[in-house]
Simulated scan of single mutants.
Amino acid sequence: MSAIQSAEADTLERVRDLPPSAKLVAKVLEYEDTLTQSEIADETLLPARTVRYALTRLEDEGLVDSRFSFTDARKRLYSLDV
């Protein structure tokens, strides 16, 4: 098994026990790369509160990186950390 396959397997294992909303957010970030919280809500059709909860769970597992947006410091950008 290559290092990439091992990392993917580890990520899948860590996501497996998370709530469905966190799984959906992780999948969207996998395809879209980097999004703001409102963009994630638009993509997933989840309420903002649910997206916040999902992001918190993913951050607790070390699966998501967040950083401030250079264009608008009030916003944070989220990306999957794989």
Rank of each mutant, 00 (worst) to 15 (best):
V64S: 02
R57C: 12
K75W: 00
G62Y: 10
E43F: 08
D72V: 00
V28S: 02
Y78A: 02
A3P: 03
S21Y: 04
D81I: 01
E39K: 14
T44P: 06
A73L: 10
Y78M: 05
S66V: 10
L12G: 15
P47S: 05
E30P: 07
A73N: 08
M1D: 09
E61R: 12
S21V: 10
E13H: 11
P19G: 11
D81C: 13
S6N: 06
T71L: 07
S2L: 06
D33K: 14
R74V: 03
S66G: 03
D65R: 09
D10H: 08
T71C: 04
Q5C: 12
A54R: 03
L46R: 02
S69K: 08
E43S: 15
L45T: 11
E8A: 13
D10F: 03
Y53L: 14
D42H: 13
Q5V: 05
E13G: 02
L55V: 06
I40N: 00
E13I: 00
A41N: 02
T34L: 10
L29E: 04
L12M: 13
A48Y: 10
D81L: 06
P19M: 12
K23Y: 06
D72P: 05
D81V: 08
R74M: 08
L45E: 15
M1R: 07
E59W: 02
T56V: 07
T44E: 00
V28Y: 02
A9E: 04
D60R: 09
L58V: 07
T44N: 07
D65N: 10
R16A: 14
T71N: 07
Y78Q: 00
A7M: 14
L63N: 05
K23A: 12
F68G: 09
P20M: 13
D72M: 01
E30S: 15
D42V: 09
V82D: 02
